[in-house]
Simulated scan of single mutants.
Amino acid sequence: SDSFAAQLEEVTAELDQLSESLDQPAELTQSAPVAALQGVDLDGDDDFDFLSGTDETATKLDLARAYIDMGDTEGARDILDEVIAEGNDGQQQEARELIANLV
């Protein structure tokens, strides 16, 4: 639960750093490939934003199921509580059902 949140924060921070480094290109010498890219606007191009549209709550449901499969009911319960707090109606219902089935 807390370790998952910490890991998620670490990954997010790492992605932010990578994103910043992509936004600030290193000094390049003028070469044919670089010259060919002059005027190409990659800012605002979402083709490389591979995390956009991912449903964090759906991912948490998947993670909770994995915890259940591993026998970590406490970890699963913590994540399912987050789903109940953050998810849409269907996700909340699924989380409640999973909690009800925990031993």
Rank of each mutant, 00 (worst) to 15 (best):
Q30T: 11
E20R: 11
E27T: 15
E14I: 02
E86G: 08
E86F: 03
G75F: 02
D47T: 08
A26C: 09
Q38E: 15
E9K: 12
I79L: 10
G87R: 01
L22G: 00
D89V: 07
E20I: 11
Q92N: 06
R77F: 03
D72Q: 06
A95H: 00
Q93Y: 03
V83L: 03
D16W: 03
G90D: 15
T29E: 15
E9W: 14
A13W: 01
G44F: 04
V40E: 12
S52R: 13
P25Q: 03
E86P: 01
L63Q: 06
T57R: 00
A58R: 07
A13T: 04
L18Q: 07
D41L: 04
D2G: 12
R65G: 08
L22E: 00
P25M: 01
T73F: 05
L28M: 11
I99T: 08
Q17V: 02
A66L: 06
E20C: 14
I79E: 02
P33I: 05
G87Q: 02
L42M: 13
V34T: 15
I79C: 06
E9H: 14
L42G: 10
V40H: 09
S52T: 15
F4S: 08
L37N: 12
L80P: 01
S31Q: 10
P25T: 01
A26V: 13
Q91I: 00
S1R: 05
S52L: 13
T59I: 14
V40N: 09
R96M: 07
E82N: 13
V34L: 10
F50T: 12
F48G: 10
I79A: 04
S31F: 03
S31G: 09
I79T: 09
A100E: 12
E97D: 15
P25H: 04
A6C: 07
